[in-house]
Amino acid sequence: MPIGFSLGGALTKIKVEEIKAAIQDGAMEIDMLMNLGALTSKDLGVVKYDIAEVVKFKH
């Protein structure tokens, strides 16, 4: 199930809600696109936070 596509710019809380819905719908695999704007701007704190919040919901 794709999360945060196509540019990864969705707010972290939106990605988390997408993850919750995907898991509830039975997704066995989830692909998340990191925030490309933050990555190219070298705002690695945003990238790290985004990934950490989403990973909390893996099973």
Rank of each mutant, 00 (worst) to 15 (best):
P2T: 03
I3L: 09
G4C: 07
F5Y: 14
F5N: 06
S6N: 11
S6L: 08
L7I: 06
L7Q: 08
L7D: 13
G8V: 03
G9E: 14
G9T: 06
A10P: 00
L11F: 09
L11D: 10
L11W: 02
T12N: 04
T12W: 05
K13A: 05
K13L: 05
K13T: 10
K13W: 09
K15Y: 04
K15S: 01
V16T: 07
E17W: 01
I19Y: 10
I19D: 00
A21V: 01
A21D: 09
A22G: 10
A22P: 03
A22H: 03
A22D: 04
A22C: 09
I23P: 01
I23M: 11
I23C: 09
I23Y: 09
I23A: 13
I23K: 15
Q24F: 06
D25L: 13
D25F: 07
G26S: 04
A27E: 04
A27T: 01
M28N: 12
D31F: 04
M32L: 14
M32R: 02
M34Q: 01
N35K: 07
N35T: 01
L36I: 14
A38C: 08
A38R: 06
T40K: 14
T40Q: 06
T40N: 08
T40D: 00
S41D: 10
S41E: 11
K42N: 11
K42L: 10
D43A: 14
D43W: 06
L44K: 07
G45W: 02
V46A: 11
V47D: 13
V47L: 13
K48S: 14
Y49V: 02
D50Q: 13
D50A: 11
D50R: 13
I51N: 10
I51W: 12
A52R: 15
A52W: 04
A52G: 05
E53T: 08
V54F: 13
V55C: 15
K56L: 12
K56S: 09
H59C: 13
H59D: 15
H59E: 15
H59T: 09
